[in-house]
Design a binder for these strands. Structure first.
Length: 617
DNA sequence: AGTTTCATATGG
DNA sequence: CTCGCCATATGAAACT
């Protein structure tokens, strides 16, 4: 059972936290195509009812195909309506827009269908990557109306001391030209179901293509739900530990906002080492000039460049860089901005990366430096279960390429070691270089001879990535295992890949002499598509794991609090930890079968139970 | 003064 | 001849 949901902005909106004092202006009732009451009537708004904590909404029951099972009705209390149907799958335009208000009201959903994320997947699959994916755009495509562009993404909203002056994003978009969100939602959903079925039929070369794509859609929606919940719950963050850590590393903060004590001292010593100038160590240009004055010419001030330089300032500069980074990116002001009530609450953006990985908006949640993770401590009586998928991408390669020999090696706990034994004379480091080189398209350095060895023993796996590279180089598209499609070569320049080949000279006489795409650009594109088939499949593996894990934890106190590409963190009562460990292992095994059936490839999880995130692994 | 790009760091 | 993938975030430098 599916319930289509259109939040009614009369119930929410306005300054955050300010609940409505009264009904206020609202959308007209949806002029619902299948014959529900259009005016006041049994299902019409009863404006005298008190508005619930998640606001009011239009709701309409559907079957899984999208066939309405009854009229749309207006409810003053979305939260209560969702509570009454705890097993239902919700259909809404955007989880990111609709779910947070429910979470703030203390309500969780079982499952959902995120129309916009699905639309993006289907558009990409149809070679229309980048076309507007919003509900209004989908509706316009369906009705032949001009397609409106998507609204610009919201800016990051630091929860820390933002003082709640921000307004809810306006959603749905202002009704224009008879746009009725509920009809649009239902009709676009039904159209999506049809397109999903067609996409499966149209890919006879891919066994199971339809099932896979439906799986991807489900995983993407589940990911959106989890991302909203994780952003809502937040990662336990001990501000006191963080501050102690900062003082330990950086020294006392400067009262006037300047660099902390140890950083200032280092800057002074660096100046001394260069013979007392007014040097700012944080300025690459100045550091370069300072070295040049001493006869040392450097291509850059990157850490690995400096490490090869014999000069007394070098160790000081390296230390300065490391600490300066922490001060500016994860120092006192970061803490004040992003941590509130003992939780770090970043905004996760599912599908924010073309490969299907999540991105984040604000707070840099996916780049928390290892040293700073000491501040991530479980609540008293609680603990963390941290699960990390080791060597995920090479194992994905083994699984998707169906290279039987490599798959056998990927059944081992240490795949690189197994590979080394079979084909690299026991040299594990060389096996690793070869495999990474194959997945990233590296051809120089030590990779070239190692790659040849890999080709000799695992030709099937090698040709899988090389085929993907060739498709990319020649301007084609590749797909992940479940069917996520890579963007076309022209993204950015040439909006949605409208075949622009009719213009071989290029836009303004700057055409490269050797063809429509220069050699270097084509090869870069090849490296991208080569990596895409692996990285995107790894992302959907992780998404499926997350979704299955959420399912098995629902009903317990455990909560998912962090997810970073191939690593998941669960916060749970100490007594529940064994259950959570078992659940994550079981989810891992189910994920393997769900995606790859009876492959011999294993996906070992490194699971640790720790009170502090920094202690994991 | 405001905006964009570069350089450099972090993460996977 | 060259050639490693995907990101976010910061401050400095360059640009409008």
């Amino acid at each position: 059972m599916l319930i289509a949901v259109v939040p009614d902005e009369a119930g929410v909106g306005g300054p955050r936290g300010a609940l409505p004092g009264g009904p206020g202006p609202s959308h007209p009732p949806p002029a619902d195509g299948a014959g529900s009451p259009a005016g006041p009537g049994p299902a019409g708004p009863d404006r005298s009812a008190p508005i619930g904590p998640a606001g009011a909404a239009w709701l309409r029951p559907l079957d899984d195909a999208g066939q309405p099972l009854g009229p749309a009705r207006w409810s003053p209390d979305l939260a209560a309506a969702v509570r009454e149907a705890p097993e239902a799958r919700l259909l809404w335009a955007s989880t990111a827009e609709c779910y947070p208000r429910l979470l703030r009201a203390g309500v969780r959903v079982a499952r959902c269908h995120d129309l916009e994320l699905t639309e993006a997947l289907l558009l990409g699959h149809a070679g229309r990557w980048g076309q507007p994916k919003a509900l209004a755009a989908g509706w316009a495509r369906l009705t032949g109306a001009p397609v409106p562009p998507d609204p610009p993404p919201r800016a990051a909203t630091p929860p820390g001391d933002g003082q709640g002056t921000l307004f809810e994003a306006s959603w749905p978009p202002p009704a224009a030209g008879g746009f009725d969100p509920m009809s649009a939602l239902v009709e676009v959903y039904r159209d999506q179901q049809a397109r999903l079925a067609a996409a499966g039929r149209d890919a006879p070369a891919v066994p199971d293509a339809g099932r896979r794509l439906r799986l991807l859609v489900a995983a993407e929606s589940a990911g959106a739900v989890i991302a909203a919940e994780m952003g809502h719950d937040g990662l336990p963050w001990r501000v006191d530990v963080h501050r102690d850590l900062l003082i330990d590393l950086l020294g006392e903060p400067s009262p006037v906002g300047g660099p902390p004590r140890r950083l200032a001292e280092l800057a002074a010593r660096i100046n001394e080492a260069f013979g007392d100038q007014r040097l700012h160590p944080e300025s690459p240009a100045e550091v370069l000039r300072a070295f040049a004055r001493e006869g040392i010419r450097l291509p850059s001030t990157r850490a690995w460049v400096l490490r090869g330089v014999d000069h007394p300032a070098v160790p000081l500069l390296l230390e300065f860089k490391e600490l300066y980074r922490i001060w500016t990116a994860h120092g006192w002001s970061w803490c004040q901005q992003w941590v509130r009530e003992g939780r770090f609450r970043p905004e996760y953006v599912p599908g924010g990366v073309v490969s299907g990985r999540w991105a984040t908006r604000g707070g840099g949640a996916l780049q928390i430096p290892k040293v700073v993770r000491r501040a991530v401590q479980a609540d008293p009586g609680w603990t963390f279960v941290v699960a990390d998928a080791g060597q995920l991408e090479p194992r994905i390669l083994a699984a998707v390429s169906s290279d039987a020999r490599m798959a056998r090696a990927a059944g081992a706990g240490d795949m690189y070691a197994a590979l080394a034994t079979e084909a690299f004379g026991g040299d594990r480091a060389r096996a690793k270089v070869a495999l990474l080189g194959a997945m990233y398209g590296q051809t120089g350095g030590q990779a070239a001879p190692a790659l040849a060895a890999l080709r000799g023993s695992y030709p099937t796996a090698l040709s899988y990535v090389e085929d993907a590279a060739r498709v990319g180089e020649t301007g084609g598209l590749v797909r992940s295992w479940l069917g996520r499609t890579c963007p076309p070569p022209s993204v950015g320049a040439n909006a949605w890949g409208d075949p622009d080949a009719a213009d071989p000279e290029g836009p303004r006489g700057e055409a490269p002499p050797d063809g429509p795409v220069s050699g270097a650009a084509a090869r870069a594109r090849g490296r991208f598509t080569r990596n895409f088939v692996i990285q995107a499949t790894a992302a959907e593996w992780a998404l499926a794991l997350l979704a299955l894990l959420r399912g098995s934890l629902s009903g317990s106190a455990a909560e998912l609090v962090f997810f970073q590409h191939d690593e998941v963190v669960v916060h749970c009562p100490v007594a529940d930890a064994p259950m959570v460990v078992a659940a994550v292992q079981a989810a891992c095994e189910r994920t393997r079968r769900l995606l790859f059936g009876d492959t011999p490839v294993r996906f070992p999880l490194d699971v640790s139970v720790v009170d502090c995130y920094a202690e994991a692994k």
